[in-house]
């Protein structure tokens, strides 16, 4: 039995899930295919409907 969680994908969803679990003191292994986490959202300039910076 293990108390760890594996998260596949380091985009906005994967990062949010990781943070939520880590906040509950659960050990998370976040696996990302590319060399940096961030996913598609890191490629965006701004987000709707508030025009906040995506990064």
């Amino acid at each position: 039995m293990s108390k760890d969680v594996l998260i596949i994908g380091g985009g906005i969803a994967g990062m949010q899930a990781s943070l939520d679990l880590a906040d509950q003191d659960i050990k998370v292994h976040l696996v990302e295919r590319l060399t940096s986490i961030g996913g598609k959202m890191a490629q965006l300039d701004k987000t709707f409907p508030t025009n906040d910076c995506a990064m």
Binding site: S2, V5, L6, I7, I8, G9, G14
Partner: peptide, 13 residues
Amino acid sequence: DLNVGAIVLAIGY
């Protein structure tokens, strides 16, 4: 090698 209790798929599009 990892041993985990649960897996979350956040593999995007």
